[in-house]
Simulated scan of single mutants.
Amino acid sequence: MAALLRPAAAPYVASLTNCTPQQLLDQELPINVHDLQQALLEEHQLVGDGQLNERCAHHLSAWLEQRLPPINESGTLANTFLDHVSADRTALRVDQVATALNLTVRSLQRLSLKYLGLSPLSVIRRDRLQEAALHLREHPQASLATLAADLGYTDQAHMSTDFRKVLGYSPSDYRSN
C-alpha cells in the first residue's frame, strides 16, 4: 500500500520516521502500521474488486484522522501553496507566489522547506516538469522548444537540464520510452 499525502501531514510523517521532510524527499519509506494493514487485508477478503479501492481509501483516511493532529494554519497554508502552484500556470517566480499567498518571500521559503523539504522555486519547477512529462506522454511529437517556452523556461536547454535532474532522463529519452 502506498499513499500520497498533502503537505500538512509532513510533521506527523516526520515524527513517525524520525526524518525531516528534506530526508524523506524522493524516498520510499516503509512504516510499520500493523493495525491498518490488518484492516486492509480484511477488506481484500470481504469486498469485490469494484469497491476495494474506495473501501481501502476510506480505511486509510479514518486511520489517519485518528492519528494526525489537527491541521494548523501553516499546514493549511502549505497545502494552499501547492494547490496554487498546480493551478496557476503563470506562477513561475517565487515572489509571484508569495504575493498571491500574502506572504513574504522568506516566509514562503521557510514554509516550503518545513512542509515539502524543497525551496519554493524547486516546488514550482517540479510541478512544471511533471506537466512537461505528462505533455510528452500525451504528445510525443511536440516541439521541446515550444514546450519549454510554454512552461516559462528561457530556452529548451534549461528545461532539459532541469528535466534530467529531477526525472533522471532527458526529455527526448523520456518521450521515446
Rank of each mutant, 00 (worst) to 15 (best):
A3D: 01
A3M: 07
L4G: 11
L4M: 11
A9C: 14
A9G: 03
A9L: 06
A9N: 13
A10M: 14
P11S: 05
P11A: 12
P11Y: 11
Y12K: 04
V13S: 08
V13C: 03
V13H: 06
A14Y: 02
A14Q: 03
C19P: 00
P21Y: 06
P21C: 07
L24K: 08
L25I: 02
D26S: 12
Q27F: 04
E28Q: 12
E28G: 07
N32G: 08
H34N: 13
D35M: 11
Q37I: 04
Q37Y: 05
Q38P: 01
A39L: 10
L40F: 02
L41I: 10
L41C: 04
V47K: 12
G48A: 14
L52K: 12
L52S: 13
R55V: 07
R55W: 03
C56A: 11
C56V: 04
C56N: 12
A57L: 10
A57C: 09
A57E: 10
A57S: 12
H58Q: 14
L60F: 05
S61I: 05
S61P: 02
S61V: 02
A62Y: 03
A62I: 07
A62K: 15
W63A: 15
W63P: 08
E65C: 07
R67A: 10
R67W: 08
P69W: 10
P69N: 09
P70G: 09
S74W: 05
G75R: 13
T76P: 00
T76H: 08
L77C: 09
T80S: 12
L82A: 02
D83P: 02
A91V: 04
L92N: 10
R93H: 09
V94E: 11
V94R: 03
A98T: 01
A100T: 02
A100N: 10
L101W: 00
S107M: 04
S107D: 12
L108N: 04
Q109D: 13
L111F: 01
S112P: 14
S112K: 14
L113C: 13
L113Y: 09
K114A: 11
Y115F: 15
L118M: 15
S119I: 03
P120Y: 03
I124F: 09
